[in-house]
Structures are given as structure tokens and as C-alpha cells.
Amino acid sequence: MRHLLSINDLSKQEAIDLLNLSAQMQEVNKRDVKKLPALNGRTVVNLFFEDSTRTRFSFELAAKRLSADVVNFTAKGSSVSKGESLKDTIGTLEAMGVDALIVRHHHSGAALTIANAPWSTSAVINAGDGTHEHPTQGLLDSLTIRQRLNGLDQGDLSGVRVLIVGDILHSRVARSNALLLRKLGAKVSYCGPSTLVPSASLGLVDEIYYDFDQALAQNFDVVMMLRIQAERMNSAFIPNAKEYSQLFGLTDSRFDSLSSKTLVMHPGPMNRGLEISSKAADSAQSTILEQVANGVAVRMAVLYRLLAQEGKA
């Protein structure tokens, strides 16, 4: 494995191995000395063309805990605003000696373009490309589900039923999760307004629901709420926020109707009161902060897998 661009880059066994390695990395994050020497001397660039808090910090911490050097690049305030091209930006960074590029970009396929380009020699990790994929988010969500539902640090997710709710159309999280969860044996359903759920999703997922209450009656093991992405709402997808919240928000009353064993997930950042109520988000069934903590461990595992090999020193 040289790059991680899509969940499709992973076989089922590779995905399970990565989750198992992540579980070992979690142990490191609980020690007094949260540091391993494994990537000593490697340089990792966080190349972020789009705003991010948790993903960027998470990758930065992950790289630092493995003793790699980290440089943070944000498009805002860089030569990109002077008109420098992606190719020239990356050429410049690589000339300074870089081993891995962690790429977040608003265009789908940006990470793939860099990985395939003859002008880049670095390992590339996709940290979210447009509306395409966000593979490390998928991995950290599966790790969270595996630990919370099975209490295990090994095995797959066969038999687990997951409902992903909200703006499926624009969600790279929904796509990476659907690909990985089904690879691991889980059943995945999408739910959202018909304007935000591509009908072609059948095949990627097992079922599509356009009525949230009808879906919740099916008693899913996991309900994953997605953020309404104001920055991508460039057309009349939903009439207004209040109506969306009433029809597709995890409100207090919908949360109360859930089994006490159902996990409530959200990739963050949350719009409290819109797609998820505070009661649901702060409940014991919510895994939202665990997802953040697991993100560091998963990214350590991915960086380790990609960079701890010869020829990348």
C-alpha cells in the first residue's frame, strides 16, 4: 500500500489489520509518554485547501506521536492565493524533502491526481476530497462501532446494521463509510430527503429511506447523523432548516424512541439543533468524542503502514 486515496484501496483483510493496528495505537495514546519512534526522520505535510479542525489536528498529532516532523500548509495565506498551481505548490514542498502529503481539497479526485502525477513522489493520504471520499473517517467510525458494539479489538462487523442520515449527496463521509462498513460485513442504509440522496446509491448501500421515522422503526444498531453542509447548499435542496430538522433531525423525541443500545454517531462538526439535538449528542449512547479520539489512533496506524517501509526514509 503506497497511498490511501479510497476505501477501495483496501482489501477486507487490510482494513481489519489497520483497525487492529489502530487498537494498539489507542493504547499508546493512553500512556504517560504518548510517543513512538517509528517514523523518526520522516516529514509529513498537512496540505489543506479546505477548512478543517479535527482532521488536521488529528493528522498532526498522529504524525507527531510517531516522531515524524509535520508541516502545516493551508491554502489561505499561502502562494496559492497568488495564483500558484497545485503542481507548483507540491513541487515546491517536495523540493524541501517530504515523505507524505495529507491532502484535503474541495475538488473530488484531487488526492488521486497528486498520487498519479509524475511530478509528485510522495505517499498521498486522502483527508477528504470534495464530495468523494474521506477514508480515515470511515476507518475511525468502523473502529468506534467495533469497540462499542462488540467490545472487541479484532474481527469484522458482520450483522451490524447502520443507518446514515442526512446530506448523502455531498457527503464523502457517507461514501467512505458505506464502502468500508459493507466490506466489513455490515448492512448499510441511507436516509434523507430525496433531493439529497442519489437514487443511484442502491448498490452502494442495501436500502434507502426517505422517511426518517420509518427508518428508525427498523431498529438499527447505529444511527449516524451527517452535517448539513451550508457551504455546499448552492441549490434548493431543502426548503429551510426548520423543516429539515423536523423531518430528518435526530430530535429529543426521536432520540427517546431509540433503543438504549443504539449508537448515535456524528463525524462533526455538529449543527446542534439542526441535524442533532444536544440531548442526543451529549448522551451516553453518543460516540462523538470517542470518534475524535479514535481518529488520532487510526491516522497513526495509516501513517505507520504507509511510511514505515524502506525507500521512504
Binding site: 514505515a308 517501509q309 524502506e310
Partner: peptide, 21 residues
Amino acid sequence: LDVTMFRDDLSAKPNREVTPT
């Protein structure tokens, strides 16, 4: 005590299994 991540030959043999400490 698992020592995999502390080895000096990681780059030559990166695929050793990491087990719990």
C-alpha cells in the same frame, strides 16, 4: 512488552504484527 514500534529495522521489515503491551 511489544517492541515492534521501537525496532531499528522497521524500514526493512515494516509488516511485523504489533501485539498488545
